[in-house]
Simulated assay, not measured.
Amino acid sequence: MLLWIGLAAAVVAVVCGALARRSNGRVKALESVETLPVGDLEALHEAAAGAAGAGFFRQPCEVVGAARPNEDGPLRSELSQLECVWHHHKVTRRYEETYRDNDGNRRRRTRTDVVADHATSTPFYVEDATGKLLVHPGKQKIDGAEKVQDTFEPYEGRSGGRITFGSLVLSLGSRSDTIGYDREEWVLRPGARVFAHGEAGDETGRLVLGAPAEGGVFILSTRTEGQLVRRENNHVLGWGIGAGVTGVAGVVLLILAAVL
């Protein structure tokens, strides 16, 4: 038993260490990249395009400004039908499950199952006093987005197994074990302050900020850079302590397992 607990503690220590390194890497990335006015970034792009031609510009950068819809206009969130430039919804089904305990007795417990989880990838602008830059979120979730819905709706046995939440329609079949659905939704409204850290490039023919082409840190957040750095430093400290404690415990337990 001591051997298995020691091995488990060692695995936890490795995971904590990896998470601490990840947070430390994010801090270094945030501190090493300069926050630029959009106008300055556009000037860099124009100079590079003039020297080397279009399609080759790649610049790690940060911009801060107000979120604005792209030329197609604002989006509407699926559940709340709110005007926004980005939205994310998650629907979780709660249901009851029958199982047998260690004594063979039949019991019931509540479980959950995520039946819908989607965030938009539509580009939007970040605008400051010097201009506006198109940002492509891709699969990136926006940290600190406004949570506009967090509700539970009991299931009333609707016919046909079709559930409608706003403009979202889910076909789930007949599930008599369903208790209800948790609905969550986050939005980024037009005008909301956005901090974007990533890489600006013109491979698509226009200047766009998105995830670094060769991997790296990509952050879209409503928080300030200072707030993000403090949070990541707290993560480094917390995960580092966790790695140290579980690492020492794992070594001690493995030694005890070997000598006993």
Rank of each mutant, 00 (worst) to 15 (best):
W4M: 14
V14Q: 02
G17Q: 02
G17L: 04
A18V: 02
R22F: 13
S23G: 02
G25L: 05
G25W: 10
R26D: 07
R26G: 04
R26A: 02
E31S: 03
S32E: 01
E34L: 00
L36T: 02
D40T: 11
L44Q: 09
L44T: 02
H45R: 03
G50Q: 01
G50V: 04
A52H: 01
G53Q: 05
A54F: 14
A54M: 15
G55V: 14
G55S: 11
F56W: 13
R58N: 11
R58L: 14
Q59D: 09
C61G: 11
A67D: 11
R68G: 12
N70A: 11
E71R: 04
E71T: 05
G73I: 09
G73P: 08
R76Q: 15
S77K: 07
E78N: 14
L82M: 10
C84H: 08
V85K: 05
H87T: 15
H88A: 11
V91Q: 08
V91R: 06
T92G: 13
R94M: 11
Y95V: 13
Y95M: 12
E97V: 15
N102S: 11
N102K: 10
D103K: 06
D103E: 09
N105W: 09
N105Y: 12
N105C: 08
R106E: 15
R107M: 08
R107N: 09
D117A: 09
D117W: 06
H118G: 03
A119R: 03
T120F: 01
T122R: 05
A129Y: 07
A129L: 09
T130K: 06
H136E: 13
P137A: 00
K139E: 08
Q140G: 02
G144A: 07
Q149Y: 13
F152Y: 08
P154G: 03
Y155I: 05
R162N: 14
L168E: 10
V169E: 12
S171M: 10
L172D: 06
R175D: 15
R175W: 08
S176F: 07
S176P: 04
D177Q: 13
I179K: 05
Y181D: 02
D182H: 08
D182Y: 10
L188A: 01
V194F: 03
G198I: 06
G198C: 08
D202N: 10
L207M: 03
V208K: 00
L209K: 01
L209Y: 02
L209P: 11
G210S: 14
G210D: 07
F218S: 10
L220W: 10
L220P: 12
R223V: 01
L228Q: 11
N233P: 00
N234Y: 04
N234D: 11
N234F: 03
G238P: 09
I241A: 09
G247S: 06
A249F: 00
A249C: 02
G250S: 07
V251I: 12
V251F: 11
V252P: 07
I255G: 10
L256H: 08
L260P: 15
